[in-house]
Design a protein around this nucleic acid. Structure first.
Lengths: 340, 340
DNA sequence: CTGTTAGCGCGTTCAG
DNA sequence: CTGAACGCGCTAACAG
């Protein structure tokens, strides 16, 4: 690895001259500058990032912490963040919490060493369940800007980017009702997350407004994962004479559709289904799945933009409690009936 | 951000004493050491990564370059690499080439600044098409270890991790033939990649051995993307009386199934289908898709292990042309018939 | 226009 | 057992 020093020796000038020449300082004469640049190119010189980072106390790296990327929402989100980041000269350090509080804490502790200029995080299930945000606060105490995406929480004052999960859920349920569903249900395998909770609330709000006069809680099936999914869902559908399903996540919706088909019921005639996230699974299932799109790309781009705003202007924490709400979209496909 | 200097002042010792104490040097007395550590904890001290990197000329970061992560193979691969890396104290910098040679080159040029200790790459389509590997060679010239995964090439002498795509393809076609297919076809939307080519060769080899005596080229449909996919595939199936399909990638297989169903044909009775990659799409489609699993998790873990071997022992390039072949797996599901 | 010098934060000889 | 001093590679005063 050629250094500035090597160039200086070859060019018979001092290191500072080289530094200035390479940074196009007006102080340096054009022929000297040209000569230096030629030598630099010759040697394949690239400024050492650690040295620059040390000097500027800024790394041009951001940290991304997500639970995982096997669900398409997160993989899209990550890709959107990285794409925006690289456009602006920032590199992305990607970490997975695997839905574990401990792992998330360790990752964050690690990020306190100044290896990133800021962090975008979507919290783990366990963190949201424990409601323990010490690690995130500690990060902010270290002066590292944080933007929370999708899996956010109210009790921390930092920037947030999310959709209106409550409203999106209402929207979906209203559509089920409008297409003739009398007994729409809500199923979820993410009951412990803020988004899971909001989506459930939205479901209840919609059925209370549009379907029941009383304070009915509706038909809700919540599970932690997919262990007994088939058995539970099967009896749930049977016992409650379900004719519509809103699933809080894509995979649950897809699995539900397969179980419904297996029972010999028709989708959407007997049971209509709507999912969240709108990924490839939704597009390519049969019947294709009506979905709420969370616009992961937009969320990612905005999250990055907000983060860089905090990083570049060194206002430590002005109006930090800004929350950007990205519009959702209901994408109609074959798994729901048409409105007459 | 507390530094070693701050601690030194508070403890009334020199910075070097602090450094030694924090690194558990036997030179430092136990009570001094304890006191220093207490203060460090108090201040929330974390060693500055840029300074350490500069000192050690090693960042404990690796670079991961993949085309994208919307296909499940790459998202699994990335997750596997990161998981192994973090276990060993390495952070992962993730970049997307978006199948573009230019983007890939720029990313790599950027990585020559010493911001990573090594790189794992799966090349872009365009790079494989142009066969221009200057950027990768330049990386190696800079002394940065490189491991290529899945999308590899023969003409570079670096470590490689892949599956036997040729053999896997043969395996799949043999299964189609064994379950009664007389006219199995091969479809691909990745004709320009090495894996796409190998899979096609494997297909041809199998049909020549098992089906035709002569050197028939078989029934091959290659497209660059999904623009006219439906139209092309439709007439391809019609004209050639296809009764089996091996698709070189998961999405093509799924799309093919949907088109076949739309034509009113039965899967697997009229047309059997096998795909590559075995992701969630394969598991949850109806009928579920028989697939070749590339064991992305294994590939990722091995790639990282091999890379770290090169990084830690500073043998620059000993037996660098090692190629690790990971075993594939044929996962039988509903889209193929049973063997009688 | 160019060179000298200091210092970013840390680890590491080498003296004491 | 502890401290002073150097240098990793770079930028930015400050001199000349």
């Amino acid at each position: 690895m050629a250094t500035i020093k090597d160039i200086a020796e070859l060019a018979n000038v001092s290191v500072s001259t080289v530094s200035k020449a390479l940074n196009d300082s007006p102080e340096i004469g054009s022929q000297t500058s040209a000569k230096i640049k030629a030598i630099a190119r010759e040697l394949g010189y690239v400024p050492n990032s650690a040295a620059v980072a040390l000097k500027r106390s800024a790394t041009h790296h951001i940290g991304i912490i997500v639970p995982e990327i096997s669900s398409e929402f997160f993989s899209k989100l990550v890709q959107a963040i990285e794409t925006s980041a690289s456009k602006r000269g920032f590199k992305s350090v990607l970490c997975f919490s695997k839905e574990s509080f401990m792992t998330e804490s360790q990752i964050i502790q690690n990020f306190c060493n100044g290896s990133v200029d800021g962090i975008i995080i979507s919290m783990s299930k366990q963190t949201q369940q424990l409601r323990d945000y010490k690690h995130i606060l500690s990060l902010m105490d270290h002066g590292i800007p944080v933007v929370m995406v999708d899996r956010t929480c109210d009790s921390i004052e930092c920037e947030k980017v999310c959709i209106n999960d409550f409203g999106a859920s209402e929207h979906a349920v209203e559509h089920l009702i409008a297409t003739g569903c009398k007994r729409p249900a809500f199923i979820s395998t993410i009951p412990k997350t803020n988004v899971g909770k909001e989506r459930k609330k939205g479901y209840r709000s919609a059925i209370q407004q549009k379907l029941y006069e009383n304070n009915a809680k509706g038909l809700v099936l919540e599970l932690n994962g997919y262990r007994n999914f088939e058995k539970e869902l099967d009896s749930f559908i049977q016992q409650n004479a379900i004719d519509g399903i809103l699933a809080a996540n894509e995979l649950a919706a897809i699995k539900a559709m397969n179980i419904i088909k297996k029972k010999g019921l028709q989708i959407p005639e007997d049971v209509s289904v709507i999912g969240f996230t709108d990924g490839q699974l939704s597009q390519h299932s049969s019947p294709s799945l009506t979905s709420i799109s969370q616009n992961a790309n937009t969320m990612g781009a905005i999250a990055l933009k907000r983060l860089l705003l905090q990083i570049t202007r060194d206002v430590p924490r002005p109006n930090n409690h800004i929350q950007t709400v990205v519009k959702h979209k209901l994408i109609l496909r074959e798994s729901t009936k048409a409105i007459h």
